[in-house]
């Protein structure tokens, strides 16, 4: 019989990714680039929301976008029409981006000189929430047709995000979606979560969201200045 020797490891599977994410976050802060990780399920309107949001953010900020999908470049093509610097990342079958893939994406994008990079993560409410990308701000979109019970079913993503954008409010009359209930369920998971009801189709609510994002970026910049 073969003899074995045991080596004790006791290391979280996410430890390497967490360390990589922390160092990426610090480097970006030092170069003055804020990274936003935008998550949601497929079809919630991430790209349409970006199309509304980008012109408002571009009034004061130099913005880049990284579109992550398993395949295709339809989203990058659409977003590039806003004039923002865009690249498409292919995850090659993976359901999420990790910090190393995000770092490589930022390098390809050329994030130096940008005030803000928005990472549009792979459409999925489960896996992206597990992997820290190195972002300074995690945001998510929940759209009206998905239902107000999602914070109960997918708690982690709601715990992780600073804000929940409730998209497609223009179709509220046609769905049994309760805005009060979704607020209550999301705050059970994350008492501090900000909630922005918007319609990316009509533009309703997008100004308030853009103003909040700009305020968060200012806060990030202050953090950098206090550190120096």
């Amino acid at each position: 019989m073969d003899r074995y020797r045991i080596i004790e490891v006791k290391q979280s599977v996410f430890a390497d990714n967490d360390a990589e994410a922390a160092s990426l976050r610090a480097e970006l802060r030092a170069q003055g680039t804020c990274l936003i990780n935008l998550m949601s399920s497929p079809g919630s309107g991430k790209t349409t929301t970006l199309l509304r949001l980008l012109p408002l953010l571009q009034r004061t900020l130099r913005v880049g976008v990284m579109e992550a999908d398993i395949d295709s470049d339809v989203d990058a093509d659409t977003v590039s029409r806003t004039g923002a610097k865009v690249i498409q990342l292919h995850t090659g079958g993976m359901c999420h981006l990790d910090a190393a893939m995000t770092r490589e994406g930022l390098r390809q994008l050329g994030a130096q000189g940008l005030d803000l990079v928005i990472l549009e993560n792979v459409g999925n409410l489960v896996c992206p929430a597990e992997f820290d990308t190195g972002a300074h701000l995690d945001l998510m979109i929940l759209s009206v047709p998905e239902g107000h019970d999602k914070p109960l079913k997918y708690p982690l993503i709601f715990q992780r995000c600073s804000a929940m954008i409730v998209n497609k409010t223009d179709v509220l009359p046609y769905f049994d979606f309760d805005l009060d209930k979704v607020t209550q369920f999301a705050r059970q998971r994350n008492p501090g979560i900000q909630i922005f009801p918007i319609s990316a189709k009509t533009g309703e609510g997008v100004e308030a969201l853009a103003a909040w994002i700009c305020a968060q970026i200012d806060k990030e910049k202050e953090k950098k200045e206090t550190r120096l």
Binding site: D2, R3, Y4, R5, I6, I7, E8, K10, S12, F14
Partner: peptide
Amino acid sequence: NEFIIKEIAVPDG
């Protein structure tokens, strides 16, 4: 919610 690599066994010698 743990997800930890506890230990590994390697052939001795």
